[in-house]
Design a protein around this nucleic acid. Sequence first.
DNA 1: GCCGTTTTCGGCCCGACTGTTTTCAGTCG
Length: 576
Amino acid sequence: MAANKTLAQMFSKMANALEFLGENPFKVGAYRKASKVLEDYPEDVEEVYRRGGAEALMRIPGIGERIAKKIAEYLQTGKMRKYEEVISQVPEGLLSLMEVQGIGPKTLKLAYDHLGVRTPEDFKRVLDDGSLERLPGMGPKKVENIKKGLELFEKMSERIPLGLAYPLVKEIVDAMVRLPWVESISACGSFRRMKETVGDLDILCTGTNGPKIIEHFVNLPGVTRVLAQGDTKGSAIFQDRYQVDLRVVPRGAFGAALQYFTGSKQHNIHLRTIAKGLGLKISEYGVFRGEKKVGGEAEEDVYAALGLLWIPPELREDWGEIEASQSGRLPRLIDYKEVKGDLHVHSRYSDGTMTLEDLLREAESRGWQYIGVCDHSQSAKYAKGLDEKRLLEKIEEIRRLNQKSRGPKLLAGAEVDILPDGSLDYPDEVLKKLDLVIAAIHSWKKEEDVTPRILKAMENPHVHIIAHPTGRLISSREGYRVDIDALIERASETGTALEINAYYDRLDLNDINIRKAKSKGVKLAIGTDAHNLGQLWMIDLGVGVARRGWCEPEDVLNTMDYEELIRWTREKTRSS
DNA sequence: GCCGTTTTCGGCCCGACTGTTTTCAGTCG
């Protein structure tokens, strides 16, 4: 998939450069769209091209004849003449400033033409020495705004893992909903879509006293800086890191505004295009036919006006959900409440802090039927992996507790290392005694392709699930080298489930790969990988990405009852 | 540059906000 990312970056840079050069804005938009599409495209374009040439590339939405040709040129020669030509006309470093709030192509061009600005350093200089301020169309306020934007950019340039923002947003919403003036409130944006990382956090509410609501908001505990405070909009930085915007809208427009601010941008553009064809206009204020408002209080209005079924936020990426809604083929997504247990946690036996009793109590309070206790295996020394003797002790304790428990049960499990030769870290006689076996790669050599190891592990009938299949960490590492398509294929053949590791920094598999796996009939298993009680809530993150991957209840093991699940594991072992 | 049950040409989502202007340009979401 490396080519997808590289090409996406090239087209994005070209879009910026062309915009700077004053090209037709729609051409700029076309490149930008192509970039976006490639970035999210679930298949390797190199593969698409190999299979069907430029023709096949053109079947990707947003890729036409010209861009397909450019992609083909790049894949064949490793170069793209048009790219080099365009980039050579602009100072590359300067354009990176376009990511800063308040700086756009026109401002950069102005500084470039009049002041000879060529680098970000040049730009900062003319910002400080007053020469930018004196140019036509500029002024003290604009300069001040750009300075603020730069400061903010340097401090918070990276996107935030969803799981870090999640508790904060819940807390803010909980605090706000208690105010007497607030009627309804909801987070929106990529947060509501459960995207694995989020940028700004947007919260929307209706109420009777906008100024009061905003005032309360910017004074919440945790606010370290107030960026804006008006009658209907407030913006604040929490904990020196999270920018949260709150908007108050009229009750009659709540649905339209929620739809609008939830996005994604591509999804909304697509909807508006359809609306236009029907002689309707959709905005954050409602659905309009001419001057007449025909809907907007509920989000469903917006979709209904276009002849569409309401689309769950997690699907709104313009990945085919609009077409699915049109034809009545939207998936019946797994619901957050349908999960009956967690399939991957660590107890005190290995490197967790929870006792087995803690886990039973936690399961009970969550209304779960089971928790899979999957401690590390013997070669995971760093994580206090269990040797066979300790493992047998653990199994015994679980059996004893289960007999006493009239409510939830624990599954005697293990997260077994896949050794360098693809064999497992316990012999089959031991694996046989477990309810649940999750196999995982935890150590690999740099540059090593671990695909053969995982494929071999899947041949073992005792393995039920492959843990965190790609090994990526959202904030810090790309993951090991692995052919995910081959994994999915073999998982499908052997009936092995793939994990959706719900730990906030993993979310592995991710949405795109989940959707691929689902389409091949592979079962998914959600596990939080929790090591303490404060991490089990992340199961919701796992369900969120499962929903983003179009999962229905029957695609996910965690929707099974306890007996059903045990039956599935035994069946899996027997039939492989 | 893309795209087509309104078009192979002529559209392309669209409104708010801000600041700099006296009617609009740039930027954002």
